[in-house]
């Protein structure tokens, strides 16, 4: 059968649902074991964060697409959380192998890491369904146009540069992502690199400053030829 935009979009949804159907809404036993290995157990904060961000997501989703679609927001969030836990486990497995350590207390107690990882998972879910609406009903009928990137970082009050930091690891950790979704995440990366990371409140500027201080360079503007 010829690959049409609608068929591509439906395949992307099918793939996502297939991956997440068997996934859990809660941390797996493997994840719990990673949490238990931490100097400071992050379980309570992780579960509480998922609940709190869920309330915000569902409220903002309903505001963006209409109150009658509030239940859809809950469904999207549930899928996002499943993907978040699944990718977190995969990331920890590969970090454990790479670093030969079992205690990820610092990473697992880092609020920015979790919020960014969850935002990335939600972006994949929202974009997957958004593409299908685009492809099947046309832009004029698209309820979810309002949810397109960078909507997710705005509603969760995240810095674009922090989301950028998880995208590559997310792609590596989830081999079942479709080609379309990888391309979408790459587009988000480009948008961050080209504009969003350069907004005045971006953590990128502090990193540049620290990097210059480490190298012993004065913080002077670069010559115009650069």
């Amino acid at each position: 059968l010829p690959q049409t935009p609608v068929r591509t979009a439906m395949n992307t949804i099918q793939q996502l649902v297939m991956i997440l159907n068997s996934a859990s809404d809660k941390p797996s036993d493997n994840l719990i074991s990673y949490f238990n290995n931490c100097t400071v157990n992050p379980t309570h904060d992780i579960v509480e964060r998922v609940e709190n961000l869920g309330r915000i997501f569902k409220e903002k989703f309903a505001e963006a697409v209409g109150q009658r679609c509030a239940e859809i927001g809950s469904q999207r969030y549930r899928l996002g959380v499943r993907l978040y836990y699944r990718v977190m486990e995969s990331i920890l497995k590969s970090e454990e192998k790479r670093l030969s350590i079992h205690n990820f207390s610092k990473l697992l107690n880092n609020n920015t890491f979790h919020a960014s990882l969850l935002a990335c998972a939600l972006e994949v879910v929202v974009a997957t369904y958004g593409t299908s609406t685009n492809a099947s009903q046309g832009d004029a009928m698209n309820m979810e146009t309002n949810l397109s990137f960078p909507w997710i970082i705005n509603i969760l009050d995240l810095k674009a540069f922090d989301l950028y930091k998880v995208i590559e690891s997310f792609i590596k950790a989830e081999p079942s992502l479709t080609r379309e979704m990888i391309k979408h995440l790459e587009c988000c990366e480009h948008q961050i690199m080209e504009s969003l990371a350069w907004q005045s409140d971006s953590p990128l500027f502090e990193l540049i400053k620290q990097s210059k201080e480490r190298d012993g360079q004065p913080d002077e503007p670069e010559p115009p030829s650069y």
Partner: peptide, 21 residues
């Protein structure tokens, strides 16, 4: 992932990006 440009350097992972040991 064949078309995706990976930016992390060899031996680098997410722990370094979030300032973890």
């Amino acid at each position: 992932t064949q078309d995706y440009h990976f930016g992390l350097e060899e031996g680098e992972g997410i722990s370094e990006l979030f300032d973890c040991d």
